[in-house]
Amino acid sequence: LLGYSAPGIEFLADRAFESSPNGNLLAREIAYQWWQALIVPKSPRDLWLKEGFAGYAALLYEESISSEAGFVQELKDTAVAALLHEDKSTIRNAYQLEEYSPEYNSILKSKGAYVLHMLRGVLGDEKFFKLLKEYVYNFAYKEASIEDFKALAEKIYGQDLTYFFSQWIEQNGVPQFQYEFTTYRVKDGFKVTGTIKQDLDTFRMPVEILVETDGKPELKKVEAVGPESNFSVSTFGKPRSTKIDPNQKILRISDEIRVATFIGKGDELKKLGEPTEAIGQYQKAIELNKRSSLAFYRIGEAFFEQRSYQSAANSFREALNGDLEPKWIEVWCHINLGKVYDVLSQRERALKEYQQALDTNDNTQGAQETAQKYIQQPYRYEGTHVVVR
């Protein structure tokens, strides 16, 4: 564990601190003062009221300090974490999983947080935050169940929410959206009409559709019900592209998220000391995205830890020839290639890589200091270790 919260006190592991405290971790652990200590889940089947709520509090903190694009990326990261083991249990039955296991964390913490974000999308900000406040006022120093929270949500929203809680709390499975559309020229501009498709028969959620145009973009919310739902969006400017759920308001699968999920599963296996199985997951990511620099980079790390230096170097080179996402891939590929050459006593080649790392001016995780260190003193293999980025 990186942190532990008890009434009135917080414990954080020393590895949670770098140059500054981990803000997301602090926000989540402090949130347990409300969602664990102040309001106690009535039974193990109600653990979402603790884990999901604390996780979403951390997301709300990130939203308060991030740009809109930055928060969308946080949501994507949360979606990946949620989908790692989403098929292992429903939120309601996740208490049967080993506490704080990868499966427990994926379903109750990550998916649990995302479910609250989706409920916010259904209710709207004003009613959602009113719900959270009244939940605290009504149940402070008491026990609460999911049914209690649902009843309060329905009272504030003024509509039945059985479909929502059934879909996201009592069942598992997430949609994968596909869509087709046609653009028409009309008297006052243009009209985009189309159909949203997904494979969950009982699915029902409000879905945002963004139409990018030559002028102002148009954003419309439609109620998607069942496998197919029609939509129509009017625009003044000529439409250029259409996106479904552009702000990541629905927990869903996509090719991008599926790639990230395979990489996430690989990371889990590598931490468990199963590098061969981890490499298999990274290769699945590459099958979907042949330019995934992150997947190639992770394979390079796994081979390096196994002292398979030729394979490691090949993988780091493939990463440099890929999409270079995230941006830190470039600088750390050069550093790791330098380490490979130092281990193999090819000092001139190592120095060239370290200099290329400096030339990126990217100091993610102290990359510049690390490259300078190995320019001054050759890298020496010191056994395996885990670097969290």
Rank of each mutant, 00 (worst) to 15 (best):
L1I: 11
L2W: 14
S5I: 02
S5H: 02
S5G: 10
A13C: 09
A13V: 03
S20E: 14
P21R: 08
W34D: 07
L38D: 04
V40W: 06
P41C: 07
P44T: 07
W48I: 11
A54W: 08
L59S: 04
F71E: 03
K76I: 15
A79V: 01
V80G: 01
H85G: 02
E86C: 05
K88W: 10
S89F: 07
I91L: 15
Y95E: 14
Q96V: 11
P102T: 04
E103L: 05
Y104I: 04
N105S: 11
L108H: 10
K109Q: 13
G112F: 08
A113C: 09
L116N: 10
L116P: 00
L119H: 03
R120N: 13
G124K: 10
K127I: 00
L132R: 06
E134L: 13
E134M: 08
A144C: 12
E147K: 11
F149N: 00
A151I: 06
A153F: 03
A153D: 03
E154M: 09
E154W: 07
E154D: 12
Q159M: 10
Q159K: 14
Y163D: 14
S166M: 08
W168L: 13
I169S: 01
V174W: 05
E180P: 02
T182C: 00
Y184T: 11
Y184D: 12
G189C: 02
V192M: 05
G194H: 08
T195Q: 12
R204N: 09
R204K: 15
P206C: 05
V207L: 08
E208W: 12
E212K: 13
K220I: 14
S232M: 12
K238Y: 12
K238C: 06
D245G: 07
Q248S: 10
L251I: 10
I253E: 12
S254I: 09
E256Y: 12
E256K: 14
I257F: 08
T261S: 05
L272Y: 04
P275Q: 08
T276V: 13
I279V: 15
Y282K: 04
Q283F: 09
K284C: 00
N289T: 07
S292N: 07
A295S: 10
R298M: 14
E301T: 06
A302H: 03
A312L: 09
S315Q: 03
S315H: 01
E325W: 09
P326E: 10
I329H: 06
E330M: 05
H334Y: 15
I335Q: 02
L337W: 00
L337S: 01
G338H: 01
V340E: 02
Y341Q: 07
S345F: 13
S345L: 13
R347G: 07
Y354A: 03
Q356W: 06
Q356G: 00
L358M: 09
D362F: 05
D362E: 11
G366D: 11
A367C: 11
E369F: 04
Y374P: 00
E382H: 10
V387N: 11
V387Y: 09
V388S: 12
